[in-house]
Design a protein around this nucleic acid. Structure first.
Length: 432
RNA sequence: CGGGGCGUGGCGCAGUCCGGUUAGCGCGCCUGGUUUGGGACCAGGAGGCCCCCGGUUCGAAUCCGGGCGCCCCGACCA
């Protein structure tokens, strides 16, 4: 199979799906609208999770897990919430299967007394739980995040950008005052901004959604919006101030310091696997994926080059030594180094393959280099190639990784500044 | 839900208009050998309910009828 991908100029949508599939990130599945996230794509998600999870914990949050299924009646308790999500809900109505004597196939068996909705988001099941956890001002604030999958039956789907089932995190916090909840919503929006800009190298604009676009059930929805290479805005994350809407719907009250009963104030905030779509569309080119070093599964890939068996041994030994030295370097502690020692591919194939997969730095190491005590280092983003003594490789790689990370941000930022049209509300953004 | 496109070995396609040997090509896969500094090459080989159901016919991937599925563009949405 040819690994060539459609150019952006020819067909932007095709270019995007080509990258997703040919860079081995994800693929379509047997279920319409649902994708298989392949190991290389999932590795990017794990990098995102690791950094976001660290930031959530640094801001005082802990992880928990709530059920996938929500009793149908819960959804109805917050009027605008159900209005927003009703048409997207997958509903479970039966509990088993039995043989259908007429068709010979299977049919659902026991009908449930109350249908269960597969969560499109977890506010309702969580607030039904919080009402039992929160009795006193001493129980507040409650700062919880969960990593989960959710299902929204969208009419049309696109790999990573909008799938029927997707992975995300959703933070759900409870506070004693409106001010504190507002501050939390803003804090998490800033966490998202920091993550997008410092790790994804994607500049974002923070803002407030118009009433027509805000989260169903929120008082206010704040968001980060990123501009993609097709000059469209992509909503990359949202943070909602929910006021007392869910507390009232689920009768969640606490006694304040004045011995009065009061409804709890809430926030919720989330980012999803859509971020991977944003990452692709922000930096990649016609040769494939371009990943920022901080989120690349392998920021550094070593490609050994050899002809005969004795060369192979020498080169692989040198490559392993280099890998070990890079991994042992203090300043490279977090850098994941891949030695591509696959036997069935030639070096040329591997060069192209890792360009397609977006590895930020490629290290070429062949007999000539081993003999001369040098390595060849190539940047994915610029294609610039340099040869350095092997004992200087660590230092150069450290500085290059930093340079690439900031160069990607600068490039994306400059692009946005050139193409952005000021608008009053996000309604006016052309949306992806 | 409107519009468009497509269903043929794992993937990408040709063949369908105009029915007729054993359904073909490229990539990938397996075996052996030669290779390896930009997507290697040679030889041999495995792998098909031609989306499904019905009809026409001596004969259907191909014609007719009816389904189903998927992708792309829009509306909706993280």
């Amino acid at each position: 199979m040819s690994k060539g991908i459609t150019s952006r100029a020819d067909d932007y949508a095709k270019w995007y799906t080509d990258i997703v599939q040919k860079a081995d990130l994800a693929d379509y599945s047997a279920v319409r609208g649902c994708m298989v996230i392949k190991p290389y794509g999932y590795a990017i998600w794990e990098r995102m999770q690791a950094e976001l999870d660290r930031m959530f914990k640094e801001t005082g949050h802990v992880n928990a897990y709530f059920p996938l299924f929500i009793p149908q009646s819960f959804l109805a308790k917050e009027a605008s919430h159900i209005e927003g999500f009703a048409l997207e809900c997958a509903v479970v109505t039966h509990s088993g299967l039995e043989k259908d004597p007429e068709t010979g196939g299977l049919r659902p068996k026991g009908k449930l007394d109350e249908p269960l909705v597969v969560r499109p988001t977890s506010e309702t099941i969580i607030w039904n739980t919080y009402k039992d956890w929160i009795k006193s001002w001493r129980d507040l604030p409650l700062l919880i995040n969960q990593w989960a999958n959710v299902v929204r039956w969208e009419m049309r789907t696109r790999l990573f950008l909008r799938t029927t089932e997707f992975l995300w995190q959703e933070g759900h916090t409870a506070h004693a005052t409106a001010e504190e909840a507002e501050a939390e919503a803003h804090q998490m929006l800033e966490v998202y901004r920091t993550f997008a800009e410092d790790f994804m190298a994607v500049p974002v604009i923070t803002g407030r959604k118009s009433d027509s676009e805000k989260f169903a059930g929120a008082e206010t929805t704040y968001c980060i919006e990123a501009m993609m290479q097709d000059k469209k805005a992509l909503q990359a994350g949202t943070s909602h101030y929910l006021g007392q809407n869910f507390a009232k719907a689920f009768e969640c009250q606490f006694q304040n310091k004045n011995n009065e009963l009061e409804y709890v104030y809430a926030t919720s905030w989330g980012v999803s696997t859509r971020l991977i779509g944003a990452l692709i569309m922000a930096h990649s080119d016609d040769k494939g994926l371009v990943l920022p070093p901080k989120l690349a599964p392998y920021p550094v890939v070593i490609i050994p080059i050899y002809r005969k068996d004795d060369e192979k041994e020498t080169v692989l030994a040198a490559a392993r030594t280099l890998k070990g030295s890079l991994e042992a370097d203090r300043s490279l502690r977090d850098v994941r180094v891949k030695l591509d020692d696959r036997e069935q591919y030639t070096p040329g194939y591997k060069f192209a393959d890792w360009e397609l997969r977006g590895a930020p730095i490629r290290v070429e190491l062949g007999p000539r280099d081993v003999a001369a005590g040098q390595v060849v280092i190539v940047r994915r983003d610029t294609g610039v190639k340099q040869t350095v003594p092997v004992d200087q490789a660590d230092e150069l790689i450290v500085s290059l990784l930093g340079e690439i990370q900031s160069a990607l941000f600068q490039k994306a930022h400059a692009f946005r500044e050139q193409n952005m049209v000021p608008v009053d509300t996000y309604d006016e953004f052309k949306r992806v």
